[in-house]
Design a protein around this nucleic acid. Structure first.
Lengths: 175, 175, 175, 175
DNA sequence: CAGTAATCGAGACGGTACGTCAGGTCTTTGA
DNA sequence: TCAAAGACCTGACGTACCGTCTCGATTACTG
């Protein structure tokens, strides 16, 4: 093992919790690294030791939050519609954070990569998994269209509600 | 006429030109209001008198730029494919600015409204105009899908090239 | 007479009144040329046409105010003590303005000259007039000492009250 | 010891030196906090962390300068005349700064207190120390008169030369 | 009585400094 | 070596006021 004092896992969790709370309270833009440090009872340096910036930190904070959410993990393959409903529910709740992260990622190459790896790709994979009985080319097509509709909806700040889900499913069944 | 010294049109144009040049040279994030003022030979206050911030200013600068671009204005209704090609060409050239503006708009309600009114809606309308022979419900569906695909492509920093256009058209003809 | 529209005397008075009121309401430092113009219903240019800056304007505004004050103008030569009392009363009332003007004059050569000509010298002359029966050398000495004591008192923001007058008179009778 | 990085004494000195140099080169009014920061290789925030504004900073810069000057510190009590000569020499050299500080203090209550505590009172005490063989009441009287004469001379921008010293001493011996 | 010249209110303009804020790094003490 | 605390440099922010300018409108005198 590496020499020196080991990383304090409690501190890491405190930081993520603080980041999450503050972002939910004030919104992403109104939270600073210093705020998070203070709330977590940590030093700013400790934040920067483990995360390159606010974006990556908040991304981690909400990755955990999302993965804690009860996802449908039955033995049977989930249907597209139930998956889409679940996905929209999550995206709707976390909409302000998702918007902010995607926005910040436009100015930060590294965050952009992380965001795609931790959020965009996994959601795409979930959808893809519901389409195993489609032709591979069609599969990509549908995944692209659905993901495009959802992200556009987020960035334009329009609701990801049941009406939208019906709309999206109507599109898919036409393809 | 209104009392007082009238707004100097030359200054307005100089500011927009300066903003455009600087954004193209250095990229949106690396340009400050002070830079634009200096390049335009204007005072910062003059910028803030007419625009609420960098986002709105750059949006105006590129709105004019876009509207100067030779758009297809034939007497006949343009085809969907040619419109999409043209739209992707424009979006591809201005991609860095579009990404930045959409990103900034996530943090700025006012800019969000302006962006939709000056960029998002007009492009949607162009597409819609090519679809007059579709059923109204289908029309909205197609416009949404295409616009979603394009914006997603922009935010994920993937190329809006000929291959993408073919892909998008394939989607549309299935609907 | 010179061609062109003649100076509007009403405007001049309105500006002086506005300056005076504003300075009394908010204090010298918190008043701007723009404020005075607005209150007077005048344009800023009109202010700058007739005064070089805030200092000179306020000086004029309070010169008139001071000269309106009922000064002892009897047929007989006024006594030193009554003159000093009167002078301290005036200085005490206008203390904030006097402090500000003298302060501003330290940064403005022109205002410095005006201040001496319109305020410092006249007050010295009033004192001098009470000392005609002293030897000329003594006279200057006393005037200098008294004026020094008063200005020091102003700049140090100490009260110019009856106690001070007694103190000053005690000094003088020793000389 | 207190936690956190301790104040960097070198930075503090660099700032004071920079302030002093710039004020001597350009004059108080032509120096900005930003100038001082740049010259000192410091951030503006660091200046504002330790001083509330330009006035307090320059006051500190010249307080140190004055205290470095070789003051008469003989075993014997210094004479009034030699003290006054020395005081006028210092005041004469630093006249522009003293005028500016006293002026600024008229607009800034906090600076006013600092100025009196760091400059006005100490000089008065030096004079008072030369007058221990006078009656207490006379002592205050003389100190007030001398200090009044000096400050008036400064504010009216008249020379504090040998002639003035003789004049002042003549006044005192009459009292 | 038209023409000239200066005034006036209004407010845009270039410029300069302000004081604040956040980002990210560095330097202590202490565990 | 990690951690908390907080000083530090950097650079942009948006505001305030300065003194000048450019309008249209007004008001005298001048030819």
């Amino acid at each position: 093992m590496r020499a020196g004092r080991p990383r304090d896992e409690g501190v890491r969790r405190a930081i993520l919790v603080a980041a999450q709370e503050l972002v939910l309270e004030r919104g992403y833009a109104a939270v600073t690294m210093g705020d998070v440090a203070k709330r977590a009872g940590a030093g700013k340096q400790t934040l920067y030791r483990w995360w390159p910036g606010k974006g990556a930190l908040v991304l981690d904070a909400f990755s955990e939050w999302v993965s804690q959410a009860p996802r449908l993990r039955g033995p049977r393959r989930p249907s597209l519609s139930s998956t889409l409903v679940e996905l929209c529910r999550g995206a709707s709740e976390a909409a302000p954070v998702l918007r902010a992260l995607m926005a910040e990622a436009q100015f930060d190459e590294d965050l952009h990569r992380r965001l795609i790896a931790q959020l965009v790709r996994p959601r795409g994979d979930e959808l893809r998994a519901c389409l195993v009985d489609r032709r591979p080319a069609d599969r990509e097509l549908v995944v692209n269209v659905l993901s495009g509709l959802v992200w556009q909806r987020l960035m334009l700040n329009e609701p990801l509600d049941a009406r939208f889900v019906r709309f999206a499913l109507r599109v898919v069944e036409r393809i």
